[in-house]
């Protein structure tokens, strides 16, 4: 098994995709993506439905491995190591690159057990008080502690949708990942819960690198540092059209298609 090196401080990028293509069977869903994700920043992946942005996101922690027909070509570098190199264990990749999903999906367990799950399966030897501390720290990190501290033994599914999503974020934080992938995390939430998650992302940015897929352009423009715009090519494969600082993509896009998309002419 390849050992992924300790944090390399000189490298400003958390994840780098090099000439990456993703196939489902013989269908190429994403082609030739080159994308460097900067550390401790929020990068938004935007584009119309079917442009491959979720596929790209899921390739970053090998979640696509769960689809039997999926195959990735090219390289995705994490600490200089290709996570698709032979011998790399996807379990190790996912322990360091966490994920939050479109629909809140807490386990049907207590709030406490939801957060403690990751550290437990990782085999962390924690005393009861250390685990209590970790659960509290994670829930605080997800801005949920004050709302649930008196009912940690209640089922996670008894919470509201927005709280459930923050519980899922707390659950991801508990295993102390470096990167958090968010796949349209607010699409099932009301505006107030959405705002809370966006505020939370800004806090988390100090310690984590965040990559978020969103179909909500306002969200991308107000809640991200960098934006990558994807579009389906004539062969139905998604490709990266433009990538840069969010302010530049939204105010001064270089590509005509980006300009058309962000001004709402299609998509």
């Amino acid at each position: 098994m390849t050992i992924i090196h300790e944090m390399d401080r000189s490298n400003p990028n958390a994840i780098e995709a090099r000439n990456m293509s993703v196939y489902y069977g013989s269908f190429r869903a994403v082609k030739n993506v080159n994308l460097a994700i900067e550390k401790n920043r929020i990068t938004a992946l935007i584009g119309p439905s079917g442009c491959g942005k979720s596929t790209v996101l899921r390739s970053f922690n090998r979640m696509n491995d769960l689809v039997a027909s999926a195959r990735v070509e090219g390289e995705i570098l994490f600490h200089g190591e290709n996570i698709y190199a032979p011998g790399v264990d996807p379990v190790n990749v996912r322990r360091r690159i966490g994920m939050v999903f479109q629909k809140p999906n807490p386990f049907p367990k207590s709030i406490y057990e939801n957060v403690a799950y990751g550290p437990r399966i990782n085999g962390w030897k924690l005393s009861k008080s250390q685990m209590d501390e970790l659960v509290e720290r994670s829930l605080r990190g997800a801005a949920l502690w004050d709302e649930v501290k008196d009912k940690l033994n209640q089922n996670g599914l008894s919470l509201s949708g927005g709280q459930q999503q923050r519980l899922c974020i707390a659950r991801a934080l508990a295993v102390e990942p470096e990167v958090i992938l968010m796949d349209e995390p607010c699409s099932a939430l009301d505006p107030i819960s959405t705002l809370k998650i966006e505020e939370l992302m800004f806090e988390l940015r100090q310690n984590y690198t965040i990559i978020i897929v969103t179909h909500n352009m306002q969200q991308a423009s107000r809640a991200s540092d960098y934006t990558a715009f994807f579009l389906m090519d004539s062969d139905r494969a998604g490709q990266l059209i433009e990538y840069g600082p969010t302010s530049q993509i939204f105010q001064n896009p270089k590509d005509e298609r980006t300009e058309q998309y962000i001004s709402g002419r299609f998509g």
Binding site: M63, V91, R94, F101, N105, Y117, I121, N122, R171, A172
Partner: peptide, 27 residues
């Protein structure tokens, strides 16, 4: 058991066996 629970467990770095025994079986 909905696939979203499997994804959640895999996303936290669970092995297949851990997903089956700690998440899917209890659910």
């Amino acid at each position: 058991v909905p696939n979203s629970l499997r994804e959640a467990a895999y996303g936290l770095g669970s092995t297949r066996f851990e997903v089956a025994v700690h998440v899917i079986l209890p659910a």
